[in-house]
């Protein structure tokens, strides 16, 4: 089967005026279907930059990127948007739920840009919330939920289109330890029971421990890539 993500010699150079900042210096990584990968590394090592490129929100300065066998550099902006809509799910550190919008409407949002009939949207969104055990939050607005609840809604939103890959950049960064562990347990469950491929960035070893594979970045390069033989389940 085609790997979900296959990057070779990926480079990213930011230019700030005269200055050139190398954020990625040649990253090779292959993520297969059903993997659960945690990316670790010091601040400024290029983790977020890597996630943005994998998420097709940014394009690399060099190297190649194939997503499910398709060369991303050959895709148009609309084709990339279509892949984001149907094959990718994002989870952010700051949740990024829409203000003055209910949890249910937030979960429905990605369906708006996919080809789902209007009538089915609410049904699909509700079903997804039910799967995550948060259907009781449907009518809550963003400011009426705790951080953990908001992050669960955000995860439901990431899952609603049945994506091939979930990209989560420090999803527990704003949560306390107990809630962090609950959210990570949920990711583990989604990976184990629904076979969803997950790529996650974290600073904390405790969090990375939930993943099956841990990749370390430093100065825009991968310095270690190993299987986590002590994977946490809960």
């Amino acid at each position: 089967m085609e790997p979900v993500v296959d990057v070779r010699g990926l480079r990213k150079i930011y230019t700030l005026g005269q200055e050139e900042i190398g954020a990625l210096a040649g990253v090779d990584l292959r993520i297969d279907v059903g993997e659960f990968v945690a990316v670790m590394g010091p601040s400024g090592s290029g983790k977020s930059t890597f996630m943005q490129i994998v998420g097709m929100l940014d394009s690399p300065s060099g190297g190649s990127y194939h997503f499910e066998g398709r060369d991303v550099s050959r895709l148009t902006a609309d084709e990339r948007a279509a892949i984001r809509s149907s094959r990718l799910g994002f989870v952010f550190q700051s949740y990024n739920l829409l203000a003055r919008t209910t949890a249910l409407e937030n979960v429905e949002l990605p369906l708006l840009y996919a080809t789902h009939p209007v009538r089915e949207r609410e049904q699909i969104a509700r079903a997804q919330m039910q799967l995550l055990g948060i259907e009781h939050l449907a009518k809550h607005f963003s400011n009426q939920m705790s951080g953990g609840q908001q992050q669960r809604v955000a995860i439901a939103r990431a899952l609603v289109n049945g994506p091939a890959l979930i990209l989560a950049d420090e999803p527990t960064g704003a949560l306390d330890t107990k809630t962090s562990n609950e959210v990570m347990a949920l990711f583990g469950e989604l990976n184990r029971e629904r076979g969803i491929t997950i790529l996650l960035v974290t600073h904390e070893a405790d969090i990375a421990a939930y993943a099956k594979r841990i990749v370390r970045f430093r100065d825009g390069l991968i310095i270690s890539d190993r299987i986590n033989d002590q994977q946490r389940a809960a």
Binding site: G55, L57, A77, D78, A81, A82, I83, R84, S85, S86, L88, F90, N96, L98, A99, L109, P110, L112, Y113, A114, R157, N161
Partner: peptide
């Protein structure tokens, strides 16, 4: 702005 960014991230094409 953040809402627009989010909509784009979840797959809204520029035209939407």
């Amino acid at each position: 702005t953040r809402e627009i960014g989010l909509r784009m991230a979840v797959g809204a094409p520029g035209r939407s």
